[in-house]
Write a protein that binds this DNA or RNA. Structure first.
Lengths: 206, 206
DNA sequence: ACCTGAACACCGTTCAAGT
DNA sequence: ACCTGAACACCGTTCAAGT
């Protein structure tokens, strides 16, 4: 009884989020190539035309998912920034781990965020903003490390881009199969430690 | 006259390559999301069913393109390796430039190679081999630098993965719009110099 | 305001039939 | 051996019509 009522309210109440939830499930199961809006609608229990009341088109729904992904990365950076205020290396390592974990656990979301599919034609301000907010929150970690005298005096942006490139590169190589995926959290940590060690040699003042 | 003859021989002679050429054109124009095998066939002047005589399915055609991309990267590494035999840093820089140039000039090909779309389900030995051959040719550059006493004594594979991650990361960030694209070869060089400088501080023995 | 059903113009893929 | 045309089961998107 309660379920039926909830179901009815569900469809009338928050279809946008219901669609996003369904999309995440389908994305994880089928991958982006076989992703269809019609199936999303079916899973959410509405007609195939209903999503168009809430999203301009298929891409707009995927974009909403990518934006959530960027927000998540931003949060990861902020949390690790606050958790280890006196240890920039740890901040960086944990942020990187969060990054890699997202990519490994939600590869399709990462694919949406970084493949360029969504930025091919339209700029889409909200997407752009979400992305640069995430980058900025990494920049704060680097800036903090500089102020603590640990990192090189090169321009913060330069250091940030390089550090980001490094972790992003590993993430994408995992996604694309150029590096074999770690099968445990432990293996992932080992990989991340190796990369960050080699990377830090260039980041640390000496 | 000669043209008509050539055209006739073309269709009977080398449809696979004609399809790949057409696919590259369409990919560059429309992006991967709107890429259709039917249009490729139309551009090559055959029926929409003809491609299936030469490629198992749509993905197999895209895979052939990705394999060509990897071969190109492998060639880039080899050429720069042979051109600057006594300057590993230069070898590395030029290889990186070739990498970034490919991504900027043929973003859709790069997308195919690195997005993971093609490695989602099937392993596809030829694709895997093409990829690892490209990685190996970068490894030689690092190995050479180690033997010349310029690079750190860490394991070659570790250094290779980190260096590759860095250039790959920048490439993917350009693709995905996280870093704004250089508008000239000169701007690209400046960006590459910045990255490689920061990277090398960790790569160089000191 | 939100949703449905039919409609349109596309797809990928298969398969009998043609040359 | 290689290609075509029709056919099937899907898409994304639009739009009148329903509640």
């Amino acid at each position: 009884m309660i379920n039926i009522k909830a179901k009815e309210r569900y469809h009338h109440g928050d279809l946008p989020n219901a669609l996003i939830d369904a999309a995440l499930l389908i994305l994880a199961r089928d991958g982006i190539e076989d992703f269809s809006l019609r199936e999303v609608a079916k899973m959410a229990g509405v007609s195939h035309a209903a999503p168009y009341r809430h999203f301009k088109d298929k891409m707009a729904l995927l974009e909403a998912i990518a934006i959530r992904g960027y927000s998540h990365l931003e949060a990861v950076c902020k949390i690790s920034y606050e958790r280890y205020p006196h240890d920039p290396n740890r901040q960086l390592f944990e942020a990187g781990m969060g990054y890699l974990t997202l990519v490994l656990e939600k590869p399709e979301v990462a694919h949406l965020m970084f493949s360029g599919i969504l930025t091919k034609n339209h700029v889409s301000l909200p997407l752009k903003q979400a992305g640069s907010k995430a980058v900025k929150s990494l920049g704060w970690i680097i800036e903090n490390g500089k102020q603590q005298g640990i990192y090189s005096d090169q321009k913060t942006e330069k250091l940030t881009v390089t550090a980001l490139a490094c972790v992003h590169g590993i993430a994408m190589m995992l996604l694309g199969g150029l590096v074999k995926k770690p099968e445990s959290k432990q293996q992932l940590k080992t990989l991340a430690k190796q990369i960050s060690e080699t990377m830090l040699q260039g980041l640390l003042k000496r």
